Amino acid sequence: MPDKVTFEYAIIRFVPKVERDEFFNIGVILFSKRKKFLGIKYLIDPKKFDAFSNDIELYDVENYLKAWDLVCQGAPAGGKIGALELSDRFRWLAASKSTILQCSKTHPGLCYNPKETLEGLFESFVL
């Protein structure tokens, strides 16, 4: 059986009014250097979104998250950030921001399969 590997993750939060510091979890980003894995999974509940914000379009937030996904994939459409190494892309995405999309502090862990772990974290913290 293969050994467990280290990983880091952060919870993605929607913060509609940054000055009020109110948020709800909408996704997870996970990085494992040894497995060369960087993944993101997100879902925005439209009812919760509408309850939190009436001046931000769901479509815009979804487009921002799609851009984050392109960065994770290292796709050319991910721009200069998408061209960086996996660890640098993760650090850039998980960095503190004062925007409507923010990440929690990063948390470490051990896992066998980063993709399965990403799914489990998503179920625990978002769904």
Rank of each mutant, 00 (worst) to 15 (best):
E119P: 00
P76A: 13
L121I: 09
E8R: 13
D3Y: 09
R91F: 02
N113S: 14
N54Q: 11
G82A: 12
R89T: 02
P76T: 11
E57P: 00
K17C: 02
L127I: 06
W92T: 15
L86Q: 04
L30D: 05
F31S: 10
L110F: 14
R13C: 03
D50F: 06
G120A: 15
R20H: 06
E19T: 10
Y42N: 12
P2K: 13
P16F: 01
E22C: 00
D45S: 14
Q73D: 09
S104Q: 05
A10W: 08
F7T: 05
T106C: 12
Y42S: 13
K47F: 13
L93Y: 09
F37K: 11
K47I: 12
S53D: 02
L43D: 04
F52M: 14
G120R: 15
T6A: 09
F24K: 03
C72M: 06
K33M: 00
T117S: 13
C72H: 07
F125C: 02
G74S: 06
S124C: 09
D55L: 03
N63K: 15
Y112K: 14
Q102C: 08
I56N: 07
D50Y: 14
G109V: 06
F37A: 12
I26H: 07
K35P: 00
K41Y: 01
P16L: 05
N54T: 04
A95T: 08
T99K: 13
K33F: 00
F7S: 05
V126A: 06
P46M: 03
E116F: 10
S98P: 02
K80T: 13
I29W: 03
A83Y: 02
A95K: 14
S98V: 04
G78W: 04
K66Q: 13
E119T: 11
A83M: 13
A67Y: 15
I44L: 15
K97N: 11
K35T: 01
L127Y: 08
R91H: 04
S124I: 11
Y59A: 09
E85K: 15
F122D: 03
I12E: 08
S87M: 03
V5H: 13
D45W: 03
F49M: 00
R34V: 04
K105V: 12
A95L: 07
K33V: 00
F23D: 04
R34D: 14
E119C: 05
F90P: 05
L84D: 12
V15I: 14
I40K: 13
L121N: 05
C103W: 03
F122S: 03
